[in-house]
């Protein structure tokens, strides 16, 4: 069981995160903190495996807090969760010792695998940011050499292309003669496998890797 400490000043967000993690059997939220002081206190008191922390919080800046945590407990993996999508934040977070950097809206799809990766001592970098940070960090990232879409099953790849083409769930379901729910589940898996966050990400990825069937 991976024991997690959630640090975020927005209670509503912590609730959302807990909801996401509740579906995973191997992850347990053992504590919550709404500011840096409390985070440090709980970190020392509780036996935790991964800390999931907001980047911008009142009081001490997230980066400062991260540096302090890493000097207190260098081995504790810390995942940074942030509203900021600019890779400048990510780069500085990794430099300060973060085991991963995720935007909050990607939490639904990426948080679980990020926590698992961090708990196993690895560094989690989503393919999108890996590409952007290629200058700073080289190939030893989770993305590996294979492009993520090669991880998809044939069925998933088929659905991926239809989604990238801008087709709705119902359309795809009708076309493939399966239920909408099936397509929706496939979509969730596709996003998770490819470590993408939104439909827009998915379309951008397809364009970038020239995976769209030209009419």
């Amino acid at each position: 069981m991976i024991k997690v400490l959630l640090v975020d000043d927005h209670a509503i967000l912590r609730e959302g995160l807990k909801l996401i993690l509740a579906d995973s059997d191997d992850i347990e939220v053992v504590g919550e903190a709404s500011d840096g002081m409390e985070a440090l206190r709980l970190m020392r008191k509780l036996d935790i495996h991964v800390m999931v922390m907001d980047m911008t919080m009142p009081g001490r800046s997230g980066l400062e807090l991260l540096k302090q945590i890493k000097s207190d407990q260098p081995k504790l993996p810390v995942l940074i969760l942030s509203m900021h999508s600019e890779e400048q934040y990510a780069i500085r977070a990794y430099k300060a010792g973060a085991s991963g950097y995720l935007t909050k809206e990607s939490a639904s799809t990426l948080l679980v695998s990020a926590i698992r990766k961090a708990a196993s001592g690895g560094i989690f970098i989503s393919p999108a940011s890996a590409e952007r940070m290629a200058m700073e960090f080289n190939s030893n990232t989770s993305s590996g050499d294979k492009p993520p879409h090669t991880l998809l099953s044939d069925r998933e790849f088929q659905i991926f292309k239809l989604l990238a083409d801008g087709q709705g769930l119902t359309e795809i379901a009708n076309r493939l003669s399966v239920s909408v729910k099936t397509i929706s589940t496939h979509k969730t898996h596709i996003l998770q496998k490819m470590q993408l966050t939104t439909n827009a990400d998915l379309i951008r990825y397809a364009i970038k890797h020239q995976l769209l069937d030209m009419p």
Binding site: H10, I12, G16, I20, M83, K104, E105, S108, S179
Partner: peptide
């Protein structure tokens, strides 16, 4: 931003809860 993100988390959760 945080509110929207929380909203998305809930919606995503909801997505997996619908019956066939």
């Amino acid at each position: 931003g945080q509110a929207l993100t929380a909203l998305k988390m809930d919606l995503t959760w909801l997505l997996t809860r619908f019956a066939d």
